[in-house]
């Protein structure tokens, strides 16, 4: 009996995005399915994932008839990576415990203390 590989939650969407980023032109769902490594997802499963990505604003749909519908990523992988990074960094103050950033950790009281003892101010 052939084994069925079950993708982890969100894995299909991540693979769809990786394949779309690799393409220079918009691609249709059938064509995209061919680019998947085995096991290829069913057409309907892929359309569901693409519709979900479209709702999230990560994919743009183009084409004037159902047979000619093509999909392309709304942002490049670099733009998306940068945005994700900024979201992760701009979150809660609790994250300071995990991330020791080079700048932006000192508050106004710290600045006053440093200014009173060492401050020359910008030239």
């Amino acid at each position: 009996m052939a084994s069925i590989r079950i993708r982890a939650r969100g894995e299909l969407e991540a693979e769809v995005m990786r394949l779309l980023w690799a393409e220079s032109q918009p691609v249709g769902a059938s064509e995209l399915a061919q680019k998947f490594p085995e096991p290829q997802p069913a057409y309907t499963t892929l359309m569901t994932a693409l519709s979900r990505l479209e709702r999230k604003g990560r994919v743009v749909r183009s084409g004037d008839s159902p047979r000619k519908i093509r999909f392309s990523p709304s942002r490049s992988d670099e733009e998306y990576a940068s945005e994700t990074m900024m979201t992760a960094l701009g979150g809660a103050g609790d994250r300071r415990a995990a991330l020791l950033a080079f700048a932006g950790n000192l508050n106004d009281e710290d600045l006053d203390l440093l200014r009173a003892n060492f401050g020359k101010g910008p030239e």
Binding site: T84, D94, R95, A98
Partner: peptide
């Protein structure tokens, strides 16, 4: 708990955007 959960989340998110 929230601090540790935040650490795990941020590490995973940041690791995925590395070039």
């Amino acid at each position: 708990a929230p601090v540790v959960a935040s650490e795990r989340m941020s590490s995973a998110t940041l690791a995925s955007v590395a070039t």
